[in-house]
Amino acid sequence: MQATQELGLSAKDLSVYYGSKQAVRNISLDFEKKQVTALIGPSGCGKSTFLRSLNRMNDLISGARVTGEIWIEEDNILDPRVDVVLLRQKIGMVWQRPNPFHKSIYENIAFGPRYHGIKNKKQLDEIVESSLRKAALWEETKDRLHQSALALSGGQQQRLCIARSIAVKPQIILMDEPASALDPVSTAKIEELITELKQDYCIIIVTHNMHQAARVSDKTAFFYMGDLIEHDDTQKLFTNPSQQQTDDYISGRFG
């Protein structure tokens, strides 16, 4: 790793078990700040499980057990003493299907900051505006902030969810197939947005769309059957992968 890059998040020897089945096998991976890392691999390869363990979403699944370490700065977030609510402020998550709250656009964004203690109306207004701007949604919504978020198109809803995760000022944004339910134009907007956002965040994205991984990410990690097969610069991995399995997978020859 280059010395100039700062570490956003570091997984060490991470394993995830569902009951007796090991879904993620002893994976160590570093994620740098201001970079997008794509996690790719066939269904069931462990990439989503790995992603979800990064903000302890697997805590919610009964029978799931996580071992190893996940470091953000000085904290190992797998430490049981870590406050999961505060953790999820640091690590935002965007899901496959846009899941806005059944509230107004404004309230969707203001919810998180308010939950974390910001009550001042002017301050909340500012957060709503800057979050929507960063998510490239401000121009489309500034005149209808108090209308229901559910009236937005799918692509707009997804950008709203991104704005919502930004509003609590996270360091890291996890995205699980953020554009797979969207049409090509909305997908292009999300991808453009990801490229914009990486100026400020460490972004980790799971995608089934190989070409999306190639377009948006700086680093790519290829998972297979719970193992990390290869992790490299995206350009290198997509032109000259070092593992034959990677070559076969990204060439669409298995998986």
């Binding site: 070409h211 997509f238 032109t239 060439s251």
Partner: peptide, 9 residues
């Protein structure tokens, strides 16, 4: 076909 890796080469 969007070839990648060796196919692209």
């Amino acid at each position: 076909q969007q070839p990648v890796a060796k196919d692209l080469r």
